[in-house]
Amino acid sequence: MSLIDQTLNVKGLVRCAMFAALIAALGLLPPIPVPVIPVPITAQTLGVMLAGAVLGPKRGVLAVIIFLGVVLLGFPLLSGGRGGLGVFFGPSAGFLFGWIAGAYVIGLLGASSLPRLIIACGLGGIVAVYLVGVPWMAAVSDMSLSQALLTSMVFLPGDAVKAILAAITARAIQRGYPAIMT
């Protein structure tokens, strides 16, 4: 393997680790209350959407998995200062696993135009995440699927805002640092 190949390989891994740290750091920000929306939005999922949009499907997924791995190890980096094995057993744990699917879908659909990025973040960051999170919630808390879906609706406005913000941010990053697409 040539030195350039090695550097590219290592660069990919380091980028994923850096984005995992970004997702963690965004979780340290206090939740932002938004008028009209019932639950304050946390910036952490914004990081997940950015990982898919900026790093692409494979590395985006890897970044999310690294972040979840760090949480699993016991570092309290999930927003609200939670960490350890316990967070993977709660009723909303499915949404954490959904992040993996979300980052993948966003990376797969992601493109370098704002409207397409918004669609990608909506389909990945909301639809794909809920597709994992809602059935999990239904199974863990003995609800029917429609009841779990209804419960999750409180997060929908915040997630929609975040999908749009993530798309705008991702587009600005792509413009400011074109080398990121390689």
Partner: peptide
């Protein structure tokens, strides 16, 4: 994988 996990933790304060 182990390296990436440890490195990510180290990078949080930096980020």
């Amino acid at each position: 994988a182990a390296f990436a996990l440890v490195f990510a933790v180290r990078l949080v304060p930096f980020v």
